[in-house]
């Protein structure tokens, strides 16, 4: 790894590693978050029962993840990629947990 970094140049390797983490890890986290949010929202806003909604959003999550992966590597600006992923991630996970809190507590 050391020699690879020296040869490639740390300056080139770090953006690549960041992009990999963002696209693969961040993309997954965002897809999962969107699935969680949608799984809570769908039964409330439509007539779909929870058990159906859960399956639907999970199946769609694979395609959403695929889209995020492609965008993750196509997006020229690494900063924009990370910002958007972080923002959507926070909104979706926050929203999902917020709805859970709302439903269970006050």
């Amino acid at each position: 790894m050391q020699r690879t970094l020296q040869r490639v140049g740390a300056r080139k390797a770090i953006p690549i590693i960041v992009r990999l983490v963002a696209a693969i890890g961040g993309g997954y986290a965002v897809s999962a978050g969107l699935a969680a949010l949608a799984a809570r929202v769908l039964p409330v806003t439509t007539a779909m029962p929870a058990r159906e909604a859960v399956v639907l959003v999970s199946m769609l999550a694979f395609l959403v993840y695929l889209g995020l992966l492609i965008w993750g590597f196509a997006e020229p600006s690494l900063a924009r990629l990370c910002l958007i992923l972080a923002a959507v991630g926070i909104v979706s996970w926050g929203g999902a947990f917020g709805l859970v809190r709302l439903a269970s507590g006050g």
Binding site: A39, F62, F97
Partner: peptide, 21 residues
């Protein structure tokens, strides 16, 4: 895609975890 969909509950547990606690 269909292979992944078989294991949806393992790969995207977030959906059933937030709905079924």
């Amino acid at each position: 895609l269909s292979g992944l969909v078989i294991f949806w509950a393992t790969y995207f547990p977030s959906s059933w975890q937030v709905t079924y606690n």
